[in-house]
Design a protein around this nucleic acid. Structure first.
Lengths: 263, 263
DNA sequence: GAGTGGTCTAGACCACCTG
DNA sequence: AGGTGGTCTAGACCACTCG
């Protein structure tokens, strides 16, 4: 595990009293200063910043303006928040290729990161309308619903919700699927992912998801939805992944379909 | 062109004075109400909302809290802003498949949308460090730099910056590449995209990009970076696309690479 | 020129986290 | 128990947009 180094946050010195004359926007000035500190290495990844009140004082401003600067840096994926715990410096994002079989732990390892998963809940349930639509089954069909959180260096970065056709995987819940569903599919059911249909969009976090990710409700997030097919072209499961938006970037290579040019 | 319907914004009626007792969070209550109005169809896509002051009064709150609610709806891609012009209801996002040849106009048309492009600037320049790295050429190599904005129904949704190896395309700038670069590549140079390497991440908009997109500086955005290769496997160009985050979702199908499972 | 959005001030209360 | 972040109030000025 990598622990957070306890480096002293330097005192702020704005060259002048940056009163808003003309177009100087205060919170942008503040952002610049913080970014400089990060880029210069004074503020290492995962470093906690001082309290908002102290920061506001150091920058000779109010908490509201200070928070505007911090929130903007959050949107830019330079800082992240832990709900009611404070502000931290973002580490590098994980590169996530949707066209490779999803195995969080090895993906993290390959990039020199420490990753692990935690089970929130796994149950056999009857398909709700939404789940039924995703899996293309009638409502009230037996399905598994698995919820997990995945961590990078002790930080929860993604909430994963899986819906799985129960008929394809009898007694699935008896196995240890927490680190990797695909490994269990392959080992016990001789099923492997072959094709995936995915969608990436931006959203924000609320409720249970925000809680589990220790995110302030309303934090920006990236939603990755996937529908997966096995080697026989059968739809086997789907998953909804809510990523802290600073923790991920999607990266892939595609062969282009010539037909789609016309129109 | 689709024009914005001038529907009267309904008067707000919160069931009770929603004073903050216990855990009732005011701005969430406001969000709910607005979302209901959108989902019920009372507020059609592209509808302009009343001024922040009027909204704040209607909800019996201050502008600061009102803006918290509006900003959160912006993060959720339910509302968007035009800088200093006000708040509007988001239309459906465009579905964008990076594995199909990028041709904005036809993509829009296929989805029943009206799209067009506008040239900002096109010049032959010497590669900067960043551009040289992207194109894998020495610094100061001749390249084209093209900047465009693309619109959906009169709304600017994406700022596209292209870097192109000049050696591959003599006199490229003499052609009309504004609607589609790929069409010009194919028609005049017999070059077609074959492979693309792409990355998707979230960021926010500032400076020229925000201006061109009529976005408030700091608005959330999706950044799509692509490096494109022709039918001979040669790197020919790259592009940086800054999307208003509510205007797009990435959607694609991928065949999975089995090797990437191990680890 | 009126009104709007963008920005900012100077306070406040509360629930929650941490020591 | 003290301090923190999350939320909120009630004002303010400015540059810009729009009619």
């Amino acid at each position: 595990m990598i622990s957070i180094p306890l480096i002293k946050w330097p005192v702020y010195k704005l060259g002048q009293n940056d009163f808003i004359k003309g177009k100087t926007v205060q919170y942008l000035k503040i952002k610049e200063t913080i970014v400089e500190q990060i880029d210069s290495g004074l503020l290492p990844a995962r470093q906690k910043l001082p309290s908002e009140r102290k920061l506001a004082e150091a920058f000779s401003t109010t908490r509201v303006t200070m928070r505007a600067a911090l929130s903007s840096l959050e949107a830019e994926a330079r800082l992240y928040r832990e709900d009611r715990r404070g502000w931290f410096v973002c580490p590098e994002p994980l590169r996530y290729d949707p066209s490779s079989t999803f195995n969080f732990m090895s993906m993290a390892n390959n990039q020199g990161r420490a990753g692990f998963s935690k089970l929130i809940e796994a149950r056999k349930v009857l398909a709700t309308k939404q789940a039924a639509a995703l899996l293309q089954v009638p409502m009230l069909t037996d399905i598994y619903h698995i919820k997990r959180v995945r961590f990078l260096e002790d930080r929860p970065v993604v909430y994963v919700s899986n819906f799985i056709k129960a008929a394809h995987f009898p007694d699935l819940l008896d196995h240890d699927f927490t680190p990797s569903l695909t490994d269990v599919y392959l080992k016990y059911y001789a099923v492997r992912y072959q094709t995936t249909h995915y969608r990436v969009s931006t959203t924000c976090l609320f409720g249970e998801i925000a809680q589990v990710l220790r995110a302030t409700p309303g934090s920006p997030a990236m939603l990755v939805e996937r529908i997966n097919y096995d080697q026989n072209g059968l739809l086997i499961d789907c998953d909804l992944e809510y990523w802290r938006h600073d923790a991920i970037c999607i990266e892939s290579t595609a062969q282009l379909n010539a037909e789609s040019t016309l129109g």
